[in-house]
Simulated assay, not measured.
Amino acid sequence: MDRILNNVHPILQTAAQLGRRLQQTEEISRFRQAEKQIQNSARVNGLIAEIKRKQKELVHAKHYQKTEYVRRLEQELKALQEEMENLPIVREYQQSQVEVNDLLQTIQQVLADAVSRKIDVEVGGDVSRSGCGSGGPCGCKGN
C-alpha cells in the first residue's frame, strides 16, 4: 500500500498515516481484543444462533397468524437478547465500540473544523465567512 501512496496526493498519504496510527491506539486494541473474545465465545455464538432460529420461527408464526405463539416467541427473543446483552464480554465489546466511535467522531469533527476555518465557500457569488451559507445540515445561512 505504501508504494501506491507514494504517487498519491500528500493529503491521502497523511490520511493513510493517520489510519496506521489509529490502529495502534488503546481504543482500537481494546476493540479488537473484545471482538476476538466475542467471536470465540461458545456462549455468545450459541445465543446468536438461538436468536436467529427464534426470529425465523417468529416470521413464520406471524405469516400464519399464530397470535399466541407469536407472543411466546417475542418473549423468548426478548429474554435471549437480554441474556446476551448482560454477558460481561458483550458489554465490554459494546463499550469498546462506543469508545472507538467517539474517537472517530472527534477526529471527524476536528478535521471538519480545521477545513471550514481555512476555506471560504462561495454562495451565490458571495464569499461567506460564517459557513456554507446554504442553511443545509450545518444550519448556517451565511452573511
Results as ranks from 00 to 15, higher is better:
R3Q: 09
I4F: 10
L5S: 11
N7P: 00
H9K: 05
H9M: 05
H9C: 03
L12I: 07
L12S: 07
T14E: 13
T14S: 12
A15D: 06
Q17Y: 11
L18H: 08
T25S: 11
E26L: 09
E26N: 11
S29E: 05
R32G: 01
Q33A: 11
A34F: 02
I38L: 06
S41Y: 04
S41C: 01
A42Y: 00
R43I: 09
V44G: 06
N45S: 09
N45W: 01
G46D: 06
L47G: 02
A49V: 05
A49K: 14
A49E: 09
I51V: 11
I51N: 05
K52S: 12
R53I: 00
R53Y: 04
Q55R: 13
K56W: 02
K56R: 14
K56H: 12
K56A: 15
E57K: 09
L58C: 04
V59P: 01
H60V: 12
A61W: 06
A61C: 10
K62A: 04
H63F: 09
H63Y: 12
T67L: 11
T67Q: 15
E68A: 13
R71H: 13
R72E: 11
L73V: 08
L73E: 07
E74H: 08
E74Y: 08
Q75Y: 07
L77Y: 08
M84C: 08
E85Y: 05
R91S: 03
E92G: 06
E92K: 14
Y93V: 05
Q94R: 15
Q94A: 10
Q97K: 14
V100A: 05
V100E: 03
L103T: 02
L103N: 02
I107F: 05
Q108K: 08
Q108G: 04
A112D: 06
A112W: 02
D113N: 14
K118P: 00
E122K: 13
G124R: 14
G124L: 03
S128I: 10
R129W: 02
R129P: 00
R129H: 15
S130D: 08
G131K: 05
G133Q: 07
G135C: 07
G135W: 08
G136A: 15
P137Q: 08
P137S: 10
G139S: 15
C140D: 09
G142Y: 08
